[in-house]
Design a protein around this nucleic acid. Structure first.
Lengths: 326, 326
DNA sequence: CCAACGCCTGACAACGTTTACCGAATCTCG
DNA sequence: CGAGATTCGGTAAACGTTGTCAGGCGTTGG
């Protein structure tokens, strides 16, 4: 039995009889033999490692992203390496070096890394394929899996306006994330359609975390013209706004309606359950992984459908109600 | 310039003058040259990949685990591969194969995988080093990073008893997880010390998820002798119990005290904030990674301090109060 | 009986790096 | 100035797998 017969048998290559293949597989099983991946990688010029970079601090987002990507990888051929990286915007080249040094076959870029032109430049120069999940700019560049943030923002704002709210506070996420800008743009469209303008005094800036969300919600609610509704750009900040309201003696949704974003776990476990927008994060991550792998396995030819859009879903729950009279 | 001089320069090996080393590094930088990791792995007989397996569905737990491990790996020498695996208890060999086929240098085992003797057998047979995070059994086996679950359970139960509660419901987690057993054991000790026995009719079994927690909380609260307090074995189930109570017209903590476990994100964002027990998950994961890497770098000699224990911390918040009169 | 085909063996090169060994050149110090 | 150390080049081997090429063997079909 020569080594390459074993190789052929295990790799289901031709020129091996069924009987021999069977015996080889049984022997491999019995001896707990596994081909050395480093040697395979060396000759195949592929590591079978896919990287996943993210920065957003919300645990549920990270886990959904990860699970989505993993569900595409579950045949075990590729492996997922997680590479979180803080403050991409201020040092994109560092992330680039990290990714290039990690020996990856390809990388999944979540916001805001997917919107760093310098990073994309580096990856292209070094021929490291990448897929971008919900990017905001340069939508024609690389593999793109997109959600229409603006449409989602429009939907939730329209819902709030339909309930009769006029003074609506807005808690932005980290302004360096594309989602913040897109969602705000959707709010503006909805306000314009209903003949209302957005009151810029009622816009405050958070960073997608509970802690900061709580602070800015307090200032929003203790201002001179207290809003009757709050649009928070993610669920964590929405829950923080509810906590702040409750401490100030306001009940939700009687005195204040609150809507979040992301349909994260907290949006379901909070009380009252949050009206929110479902982003199919896991599905988008699956899709990104799928397209990346298709490119890696398909010798890198660009595919026909360059973009795949996923649609949002407005989930109306108990945290929003009609505006209080007067 | 021969290849090996470059190799020596980049690896800070001796027999290279400072000037040459400097020039080599600059050239490598300019050309974006990175040594091929597969070739390095092949000759070093190491992949510089660390695996992390987990099963628990809670996102905050997963992310803390991951971040803890990553914070130890941040020099970039090792990379972290995530390998979630459902239902380890029913098919430990499958997980073993997955891990062995992934070409790892070592693996971090979270519950309940860390308590599968068959899995540990496989890993030992194949010489794949592992570190176990909060195992329950066979504490002398492999690298162990432990928390005293029983002491933590004792602390939270003692707190509840000190508030004067007598009818205390208990929502167990997945009974195959070590934490469930250890925590329950701690409850029992606390009850015994206060002269009370545990009422087995008030023990129900969940699986650490919100959905099942909600169901069993309802049955608990609609039983003949409604408890005045609930000890849930994690925060997700505690939040579920609060939601169930609220729907049945009970207010927390006036009518019902609820305590959770884990100090997860929901415990802080829930209303009222949950009394819970802080498990230093990230710190334990860091520790597990630290010890695993020490073993990998140190040629595998067993270290002196075989176990490191991390201590819990009872966090009393607004979801627990004195038992209602009568 | 010969040709064609499928299965298998053997020898060998290749992937990109590190390591070992051997010299030659240069430098340091007494 | 000479002994010894240090630096650097050359050549070769090794890591474990896959690919190529030539060829042997057995079976089948003409």
């Amino acid at each position: 039995m020569t080594p390459k017969t074993v190789s052929r048998a295990l790799n289901n290559a031709p020129h091996v009889s069924a009987a021999v293949r069977q015996k080889v597989k049984e022997a491999a099983e019995a001896l707990d033999y596994h081909p050395n991946l480093a040697a395979q990688s060396l000759i195949a010029r592929r590591s079978f490692l896919i990287g996943l970079t993210y920065e957003r601090p919300s645990p549920s987002y990270v886990v959904e992203l990860q699970n989505g990507a993993l569900s595409r990888l579950d045949d075990g051929r590729y492996r997922l390496v997680v590479l979180p990286f803080a403050h991409v915007a201020s040092r994109p080249e560092e992330l680039g070096k990290l990714l290039l040094r990690a020996g990856l076959d390809g990388v999944l870029l979540a916001p805001p890394a997917c919107d760093q032109p310098l990073l994309l430049d580096m990856l292209e120069r070094q021929r490291l394929p990448y897929a971008r999940i919900t990017p905001h700019r340069d939508l024609g560049r690389g593999l793109v899996v997109a959600m229409d943030e603006s449409a989602a923002g429009h939907a939730v704002a329209t819902h709030m306006l339909a309930l009769g709210h006029k003074r609506i506070g807005i808690i932005l996420g980290d302004p360096s994330h594309a989602a913040s800008i897109g969602r705000l743009e959707g709010y503006r469209r909805a306000f314009a359609e209903s003949g209302l303008g957005i009151d810029d005094d009622l816009i405050v800036t958070g960073d997608f975390t509970y802690a900061i969300g709580y602070q800015v919600a307090r200032t929003l609610l203790s201002g001179p013209r207290r809003p009757t509704a709050i649009l928070a750009q993610n669920d964590d900040m929405a829950v923080a706004a509810i906590a702040a309201a409750r401490e100030m003696g306001l009940s939700v949704p009687q005195d204040l309606s609150v809507a979040g974003f992301d349909n994260s776990e907290v949006s379901r476990t909070a009380w009252p359950p949050l009206t929110t927008v479902n982003q199919p994060v896991a599905q988008m991550a699956w899709d990104a992984a799928d397209r990346l792998i298709a490119m890696l396995d398909g010798k890198g030819e660009p595919e026909v459908p360059q973009r795949r859009d996923h649609s949002h879903e407005l989930l109306v729950r108990a945290s929003t109600a009609a505006a209080p009279a007067g």
